[in-house]
Amino acid sequence: MRLFAGLALLVLLLFLAALVIGPAAIGPGDSLRALVLDDGGPVTLVMREIRLPRALLAVMIGAGLGLAGAAMQGYLRNPLADPGLIGVSGSAALGAVIALQTGLAAAALLALPLSALAGAMIGVTLILALAGPRGGSLTLILAGIAISALAGALTSLVLNLSPNPFAANEIVFWMMGSLADRSMTHVWLALPLILAGGLALALQGRALDALTLGEDAAEAMGVNLTRLRLMLVFGTAAVVGASTAVAGAIGFIGLVVPHLLRGFVGARPGRLLWASALGGAAMLLAADIAVRLVLPDRDLKLGVLTALVGAPLFLHLIYRTRRGA
């Protein structure tokens, strides 16, 4: 319980910090007051239209990715599993890239995220068709790898054949992932999907606990493996698809956060779900604050930072695991 209180407090503090830190020089007190009380001036505009959606998206996406990572690792019983494994982030990115390349993204505000969501849906449909409703976890991984590879190849093809260097440039930058310049519209688009997907994943705690003993023992204890798998795929697809649609590809949160927190929850997969949701929110908020502080005038991309921080952290964790074994 202390862990949860601590993580929740950390998320709250980072959320407030994310609201008061930005290029516009406004005092913390003034900015929070302007957020709550409409002063009709530019400060309220900055707070409500720029910083609030950005902080909200960081919490939602971070929590969703942490949760999806913990659920995926629990289901596959592998600490190296990642929510991107089922290929949804790749196919969502492909949808977005097509919207950018065709110019649809410039024509309408929501064309890009909606196109990415369509990509994610096609991806998840293909995964379920390939892996079947009843197959084991191995077929799910293989189908995910196949879809990821295909989506990646098609994304490269779009870049390769792009006649317009500006579009190519835009695609590359978009794929790095960012929360800058997002509006409340993005929040409302992603929120229902992340909530629904998050709920579908969060309710699988006990089934994932039972899976500690293997699929056979879990099934004999009353766990419906087919349902668990469907919930896992749909939940992860909703969370990752919506996240990628509004923020681009943000890696390593789903991989590193559950790994970091596993020791604090006694390695229990069920408790790790909630802890990773809070931990993911905290990590993404911290990362989004960091991109504003480290290189404020160079537009450092969020996905670049999470990978820069996440990869060495991950290497350290692997080193520690190896030493422990």
Partner: peptide, 30 residues
């Protein structure tokens, strides 16, 4: 079925480094 019969498979899987007490308590899930 989970309350009527307990099943111990041949493959001895313990996927996560949980404590002995936690692992035994998984038997209460049904």
């Amino acid at each position: 079925r989970g309350r009527h019969a307990a099943w111990m498979p041949q493959a001895r899987e313990i996927a996560w480094p949980v404590t002995v007490e936690t692992l035994v308590a998984l038997g209460r899930i049904p």
